[in-house]
Every structure is written in C-alpha cells, then in structure tokens.
Amino acid sequence: MKNIVIGRFVPGKGFLYRMDPRTKIIALVFLMASAFIIRDFTTMFVAVGLLVALLFVGRINIIRVFSGLRPLMYLLAFTFIFQLLFNTQGDLVASWELHYSPLNILAVTMLVVTWFFVRRRLPFKFFFFIATFVGVIALFATLRLGPAFATGTLNIHQNAIETGFFIVMRLLVIVTLSTILTLTTKPTDLNLGLESVMSPLKVFRIRTEEMAMIISISLRYIPTLLDEANKIMLAQASRGVDFSEGKFKDKIMQIVSLLVPMFIISFKRSDELANAMEARSFVPGQPRTRLHQLTWGFADTVALVVSLLVLTAVITSRVVM
C-alpha cells in the first residue's frame, strides 16, 4: 500500500509534460470538437496522422495509450457491427443469402461452443471474439448443408460502412486525446487547471474553489482509505470472514462487513478533518492565496493557437465541402 498511484500520471519528459494544465484542457476541448465535426475521409486520415505525430513528438508511452484504449474495444466493435447490420441507407455494397438449416445451426453451435471453452486460454481474446462472430455469419452465408427451413439476407450498405468508420475513429481520437491529458498531467495539476478553466462559472454562483478543494482532499485520502479497507479486511478475516470465496449471498455479507466500518470510520475522519481545517483558519468561501501557481508559457500560446487552427480548419472544410 506504500506506492499507490492515483490517476495514470507517469513522470516523463517532453513538451506535453511541461505545458500548463489549462492549455491542455482547453486544447483537448477544441480537438474533441474537431473530431466530431469531421465528416470526410481525407480530413479524418490527416487528423489521425497528426494525432500519431503528437504521440511521437510528445514522447508519450504508446503502450499506455493502447492499454487505455483496450476497454473500449468491445464498444467499438459492437458499434461498427450494429451499423453494418442495421444501417440501410446509401448504395448496396454487398449482399449474402443466409441459409438457416438444422445442420448449419449445428455447425454454428459447434463453433460457438469451441470458442466458449478455449477463450480462457487464448491470447488476444478480443480478436477471437470478433473472429467467432464473423465466423457465425460467414457459416450461415456460405454453408449449404441440407434443406433450409428459413432464409434471410444480409445487406451491407455504403452509409453503414461510412458511419461505422467515423464513429469508431471519433471515439478512438477522443479517448487517445484524453489519455494524453491524464498521462502527462499530475492529478493535482489537473485539478488546479480544471478549477481555473471552470472559474467563469462563478458568475452562476458555482463555487469552483470549493469543488477543487473537495477533489484535492479526495485525492489525498484515497490511499489512506485503501489502507483502512485493507486493515478492516484483515481484521474481519481474523474473525473468520473469507473475502475470496462463497456464494453470491455470502459475498454481499462480506462486502457489508467491510462497508459498514468503512463508513463509520470515514464519518469520524471527516469530522476530525473538518475540525483540523477550521482550527487552521479555513473558512469556506473566503478568499485564499495559493502556493501553486500555473505559469503560462510561450509553448502554451502556440499549443492553444494550433488547436484553435485545427478547429477552424475542420469547420471551414466542412462548410466548403
């Protein structure tokens, strides 16, 4: 529990690490907006090219970016497949006749069952999942085993491919961009930047400083609470609670035995912390000076101008085309 990393920040070199968090947040918003506006292939490819260039120039750990994208894979695959199957606009690109016969269904079932049993032992689980899915459709479309009791058609349309492609690319770009932000910015700096970027909301009586204070205290107490949870689990284990096994009902009881003390301790902690903060002259809503100051450099101006240029370029290309 001594080396808990909060967030995904990894110290590194490169200009992105030195940049003001405010710049990164605003540029992120501009670039995300651009990703949504792009509607043609060439611009999208250029954008992806620029993004890859940014990863290299900024000396970002590519493996970490990929690991950030991994949980997104299923979502992307499903979106794309759904588009292919159900979007029926535009020209017809391809069409297959699906042959539903008892023997075909048996073949498909065998494929699925094989996948089900070997999947745990396979590397690249995701690709095998997609391959199985495509395999099921391919079997129906190509195999002609015995008489069919029903037939269906699978039509793929132009728009389905295009829309699917754009949705996938947009999501990839957006997640990569935000991964760059979290990889290159310390949680505390991110918090400070967010507070500063959100400060215009004060007009609507939203107390951004207090929100930032809440976030920073939460960040500070995550390791403490994890430590606490660990201690309680050990204490409960010594009284016979087994956290690793049991039926669903037992699991709930185990979680309750962890959560109830956690809640009580947390309330007590917050009470004491509030006292300590007040004793040190903290008054909610009062102005405070700041130890941490964000410094705006030349690189920040450049980065902001570039991202704004990207946004305008994308908008003009959309208007012109």
């Binding site: 505390t188 500070r220 004491e272 912390l273 300590a276 040190r280 002259s281 405070r288 000076t289 700041r290």
Partner: peptide, 23 residues
C-alpha cells in the same frame, strides 16, 4: 486526520493560504 495537503509542502501551505499570506 489533520493532514490536508496532497504533499508535505501543500499541507504546510494550507494554513498560510487560509491566512492569505503572499506566495
């Protein structure tokens, strides 16, 4: 339960920030 800052430096600064001591 009285360590407010994320780091030692931030924690010592906490009271000073409240008193509006210049940076």
């Amino acid at each position: 339960n009285q360590f407010v800052g994320v780091t030692v430096r931030d924690d010592i600064a906490f009271g000073l920030e409240n008193l509006q001591i210049p940076r």
